[in-house]
Write a protein that binds this DNA or RNA. Structure first.
Lengths: 193, 193
DNA sequence: GTCTATATAAAGATAGAC
DNA sequence: GTCTATCTTTATATAGAC
């Protein structure tokens, strides 16, 4: 669609950063251009479809990166469930927050229905499905009891993701340490006794 | 500040509903007025501080209602931890989604710093602290092992809240049933063996 | 590829009649 | 308490020079 270039990449990264931090509606085209170090009119040279096209493109890219990051964590520590989940948590904590509720209820209603549907599907396939799969494999190995793994995967994912919420005042320990505690509880809770 | 009246209450409820569903930035004053069945200029009669004042007022009210709803659930089933958590979940599922990440990262940056600080504090005191307290009391009774109960409370809260995210296509069972499963895992995971 | 200038539309808000 | 009319500001987007 548009030529790759160093400047375009700066725009995409600025957009990804700001959209991810504040959501579609709280970010202006000027914010993005300013973050990328160019005039906001210049942005349309790199993003002919404007704000909406930019959002769809960088959100898809962010989701794909999450999918790949999670897949790498899963592959690296296979078949050690605890290490797999810790590595997924480390990845999620290292990335900007990915607020699925905001994405679905606030951001996506502002874009074309086709794009919204595409991103919704991509989000679930990138986040929930891989986590559920890791649990499923551990279940097949007999390490955890059979639960509704979709529900549990969602709970685990949002538990880790919510660590981003904590303002520093409430952050008594490193987020990764909190994540380990949460993972411990989940694993213990699913382990047959 | 402003006289209570049936019309003003309609405005507040419309604002609460829309802000809660889509967030501060995705809702316009016209949306709220339209939902309340009045012209948008009339809205300023009931809300002299405009959109921002309206948001702060209804968000505080929503948070306070959540605090009270959780407190009622806790009191009703004291000292039965599982029933307490189920009742909290039932309350949260029955209410519109309360997205803390969106509130803190997307909505609050748009309001005056004083208001933002006030709402941040109120949010944590209304949601996380009560849930942590229920866990703490169960811990004192010896029913669950000592964990970082702040982390676990946050995980539990966001796990339940994330059930709102699931589009109907992914909703194979009632949300309350999923919540029960999640609560089971949390309790089992914290129970000393 | 970036800028200045400008067009267009939408949003928040106020004044004043009824 | 509600409306019509209007004002001001901001946002998205385009045209065209350099």
């Amino acid at each position: 669609m548009t030529e790759p270039s160093e400047a375009r990449e700066r725009v995409l990264q600025a957009a990804a950063k700001l959209f991810s931090a504040r959501g579609y509606n709280a970010v202006t085209v000027k914010d993005i251009a300013s973050e990328a170090g160019i005039h906001h009119a210049s942005l349309y040279h790199h993003a002919p479809n404007g704000k909406e096209g930019l959002f769809v493109e960088v959100t898809a890219r962010t989701l794909t990166q999450h999918r790949d990051g999670i897949a790498a964590a899963v592959a690296q520590y296979n078949p050690d469930l605890r290490r797999q989940l810790s590595a997924i948590a480390a990845w999620l904590i290292d990335q900007p927050p990915l607020d699925m509720i905001r994405l679905i209820y606030s951001d996506l209603p502002a874009v074309k229905p086709d794009s919204a549907e595409y991103l919704t599907l991509l989000a679930f396939e990138s986040m929930l499905v891989p986590v559920a799969q890791v649990l499923e494999e551990a279940s097949v190995r007999g390490e955890i009891a059979h639960h509704d793994l979709g529900s549990i995967a969602g709970a685990l994912f949002s538990s880790i993701e919510s660590l981003h919420t904590l303002p520093d005042a409430y952050l008594t320990r490193p987020r990764q340490a909190m994540a380990e505690d949460i993972i411990d509880v989940f694993i213990a809770g699913m382990t047959p006794r």
